[in-house]
Design a binder for these strands. Sequence first.
DNA 1: CCAAAAGTGTTTTACATACACCCATGG
DNA 2: CCATGGGTGTATGTAAAACACTTTTGG
Lengths: 233, 233
Amino acid sequence: MNIPSPAEKAAILESITIDCVIFGFRAGNLEVLLVRHGEGISKDKWGLPGGWIYNTESTDDAANRLLLELTGIKDIYLEQLRAFSDPDRFPLSRVITVGYYALIKEEDYDLKAGATASEVAWFKVSEVKDLIYDHAQILEIGLRRLRRRIKQEPIGFNLLPQKFTLLQLMHLYEEILGKEMDKPNFRRKILKMNLLTPLNEKQKDVSHRAAKLYQFNPETYQQLQEKGFNFEF
Amino acid sequence: MNIPSPAEKAAILESITIDCVIFGFRAGNLEVLLVRHGEGISKDKWGLPGGWIYNTESTDDAANRLLLELTGIKDIYLEQLRAFSDPDRFPLSRVITVGYYALIKEEDYDLKAGATASEVAWFKVSEVKDLIYDHAQILEIGLRRLRRRIKQEPIGFNLLPQKFTLLQLMHLYEEILGKEMDKPNFRRKILKMNLLTPLNEKQKDVSHRAAKLYQFNPETYQQLQEKGFNFEF
DNA sequence: CCAAAAGTGTTTTACATACACCCATGG
DNA sequence: CCATGGGTGTATGTAAAACACTTTTGG
């Protein structure tokens, strides 16, 4: 993040920015999307994708625009975390940032560094360190939100490929919640919810019995949500 | 909310404000604290207590300060809701507001209108109408947060007097969640959680069998929270 | 004695948990 | 034939839900 130029200042809000925590899942690991800054006081350092808000756009719109400009990712559902407002969080001036978070299927998007980002990459959440400003705190809050949400809504499906096995889903839960689960019980529980459509397809190229593939069923989820339901594991 | 004077501008952030949703509970009704504006374009209209943020304070600090200045309420736990950022939400300029919410025991606080507020009062949530700007939306988000939270943590105790009966507590849940509950089952469930300390005291001046009084036990709550627990009703 | 709320007991049903066990497949 | 994960079955305990019932107290 840089201090905006005089020309830029006219078009943006001077003391508010956006930062995005984008989660992905690959090879059993929860990952987060970071950008390397190409200019400014944090040049060459890694941080969350983010930037200034135009006068004419909401923070939701700004988050989507910035994510596209910096990383090439577009049309995803970003949810607001909250505002981060420590007076000293940004060293050059008083800036409050609004955090956003999202879950995406890594395979669905091609990363393309743009605007002020010289590089974009996925990092294992467990190995992230030395983020700029208070981005570690924003990531932490994003993680907490993810852990809470995944126990209340089936958002985990957003991290998996279209077609997945029950054990992949279970491993996702285990990774995010940090605890081991019982396979038979997990199967029963998730199947009883009727959120999964079984496909007439099986895994390929695995050196063990091939598992049946499932896909998430958004319609039954809609119905369930209206009735209100619980998603404890 | 007014456009700040030049002198004020130097000390505050120009495009961010705070608004607070303060909930109370009286005579079986959920209430919200509103202020009547004494000046500016919204003079004489009712809205949430709020205002500008100083350069040197966090939004948390600003929320507490503003609440004290406008209503006389101090030292309460305010939780951030989120930022509200519709470019047209405030008619005079582009302003993003950060919403806060809190639950308090009405009887514990004396209301005292101050600063730009000419009046402060409690309103039944079900009867609130015609709030300024997007304050109706902020209230709605506060309500949703309250309903979600009360199903996960025992925050309801913050709305009741120190000493209360089990039925009062149940009525609080019924009012907030908008559904009827079974008295015997509610008793068993809440007592099994060990969050309540029974007192050697009973209701007085009631024209029926006097109920035992209880009080909330924050220590056992601490213990439970560390283990992680569930609070569904 | 009646009304109104306090408080207890019981039955049914559902589900979480734990764990034993068989199945299919590639190497 | 064995390792690996896929998948099924079952016993046990606990808790939610529904509801019948007794107790206490003021009027």
